[in-house]
Write a protein that binds this DNA or RNA. Sequence first.
DNA 1: TTAATCAGTACTAGTTTGGTGCTATATAAA
DNA 2: TTTATATAGCACCAAACTAGTACTGATTAA
Lengths: 167, 167
Amino acid sequence: MLRITRETDYGIILMSALAQADEASLSAALLARRCRLPVPMVGKTLKALAQAGLLISQRGAHGGYALARHPAEITVAEVVEALEGPIAITECSSAEPSGCVFLEHCQVNSHWNRINEIIRSTLGAISLKQMSQWPSSLRGADSPVTINPLSALLGEHSSVQPDPTRR
Amino acid sequence: MLRITRETDYGIILMSALAQADEASLSAALLARRCRLPVPMVGKTLKALAQAGLLISQRGAHGGYALARHPAEITVAEVVEALEGPIAITECSSAEPSGCVFLEHCQVNSHWNRINEIIRSTLGAISLKQMSQWPSSLRGADSPVTINPLSALLGEHSSVQPDPTRR
DNA sequence: TTAATCAGTACTAGTTTGGTGCTATATAAA
DNA sequence: TTTATATAGCACCAAACTAGTACTGATTAA
């Protein structure tokens, strides 16, 4: 648990595929084939990403989707927030009022806010360029974000590869 | 989004209440009253936490629940995992095989594993004792966990208190 | 024996997720 | 101008999950 939705998973995969594609723009159908993902969901996901301004769409023949910015300047946090809304680990971590009248004597709320901030900045410290490269090159310092808890761990953790299956 | 369930939220609040209670043991009904949470959900949540070994339950009159260990030695990660199962930000980050046959040429999977590890160790670096204290005392160094991305941010971020409502 | 209290299970309404289908609109090229 | 190719925008659906309720049984102190 504590999981991103499958659509967000798709979103990251698709954006990564665009980041490392030779072509400037790719159609939804081609992207689906290249990433081996179901076509309808790919269309839906790309639409949402375009609406959020992370992709630029071109209609009509020879149309398709292209990254709106350089992959080093798009963060994982942006993609997650485009597809799931603001990152909020609890109801009370979100920007909108949650309607809880007990906040004033809630001891754990501010701690969750801090935890939320760490998660947000962790995801904000990883660029699409990094996500689109194979693990060994993750150490490259092309992230645009300065606060970077990720860097504290990179290279110190033995990369855990738990199981040989996906989806 | 990217949210813990409300039951987990309750779980942390309840464990924190136990951590700072004068009594060694509290009944579900009393805890519910003290935390202003719905009684049935409190009972359900406490049962699950006891089953996971984080609480010790005592049946019968004058029974109730008590922390199984010292609050400084119980982490937020443990509570989350007790109520939601293993922390896995994607299907493929979990320990169980996900059945995805494309893992071998999935570029983003290993990156998610690293992100997952950061989130897990962030939650594993925060003790119940810390959660049960008011924000200013969070800086105290009583966490049993050595790898601590939290420490990189503590004291540097201005505490954001977004909205005055909860639940 | 009795009242208090946890254990276990089953159930339900509502929401979210994952996915499908259809129609409208835009565009390049024949 | 027509046609094939694409995206845009809905509306819809089944399955799963979440949050919460209800009830019965077991345990224990007084």
